[in-house]
């Protein structure tokens, strides 16, 4: 199983100095789409030593705004520049009517939304000339308009659009707690051949709900769910993400000792 780590500025120099035993790094696409500056310079250096997976937060595949052609152009250029091994984003929308919330907002799980996403994903995949991965997001509300479960929604979109799934196991854990469903049912409902990458991260338990903070170590219960997921989707590459309270590189790499 291939192991990857979310690429964060705090670790740039340590990665080049230590060259840890990792199979790839996952870079946040939009942080490098200026094609200049310190971040971009480091990315190109790191890409000489490690494969790079691109993970975006700005595609807004679920929005009703038109797809941003300049964004897609820059994303395609970046993927070519670093010879990206994959391009991913999220099953979400981030804004509408020209306003960007800079957050990954949940979608209503309806047949209309499925058709809406399928059309846009196919447009994106045709433009990028490759299949993309989309990730399940954490959420704190559900919609009375929902016509299906989250996993039925994701499975339907992936099958109809022929895209792949980036399965965030922590997000399944978070949503199972927040919305009261069985995480096993989620794993059972995802098509075996569609999952091409896992994400794991830490979260904050607030008793009545869980917030997907990416600011702490992965808890044992999430590791256990990951091991279950690994049985459903064997040999799927795993990326560990940390976005706040980021420890030194060597300390963060200890997370992989759970494997």
């Amino acid at each position: 199983m291939r192991r990857g780590l979310g690429l964060r500025p705090l670790h740039y120099q340590a990665i080049l100095d230590q060259q840890p035993e990792l199979d790839f790094f996952e870079a946040i696409s939009e942080d490098f789409m200026h094609f200049s500056g310190n971040d971009y310079s480091y990315l190109k250096k790191i890409a000489k030593h490690y494969p790079i997976a691109l993970h975006g937060v700005g595609l807004s595949i679920g929005s009703t705004d038109p797809l941003n052609k300049n964004y897609l152009r820059d994303l395609k250029k970046l993927a070519k520049t670093v010879s990206a091994i994959s391009i991913s984003d999220h099953f979400c929308w981030t804004g509408v009517d020209g306003k960007n919330t800079h957050d990954l907002l949940p979608l209503p799980f309806t047949a209309e939304t499925v058709e809406h996403l399928v059309s846009r994903i196919q447009t994106v995949q045709d433009y990028l000339d490759q299949r993309i991965l989309l990730e399940n997001v954490s959420s704190y509300v559900t919609f009375t308009e929902n016509e299906m479960t989250e996993w039925e929604f994701i499975a339907s979109v992936a099958e109809k659009s022929d895209c792949f799934i980036l399965l965030d196991v922590n997000n399944i854990f978070v949503n199972a707690f927040n919305h009261g469903f069985n995480a096993q049912h989620y794993l059972q409902g995802i098509p075996r051949t569609r999952v091409k990458q896992f994400h794991l991260a830490g979260h904050k338990q607030c008793q009545t709900h869980i917030i997907d903070t990416h600011d702490a170590s992965i808890i044992n219960a999430v590791w256990e769910l990951y091991r279950e997921a690994d049985r459903y989707f064997p040999n799927t590459p795993l990326v560990i993400e940390r976005d706040s309270n980021i420890p030194p590189l060597e300390e963060l790499l200890l997370e992989f000792s759970e494997l």
Binding site: E30, D31, G58, D65, N70, G98, H102, D103, D243
Partner: peptide, 19 residues
Amino acid sequence: SLNYAPGKAYMEESQGAAT
């Protein structure tokens, strides 16, 4: 509160470019 927003600078610059 939307504190964590990776890629925010790029997205704000490209916001007007949606076509």
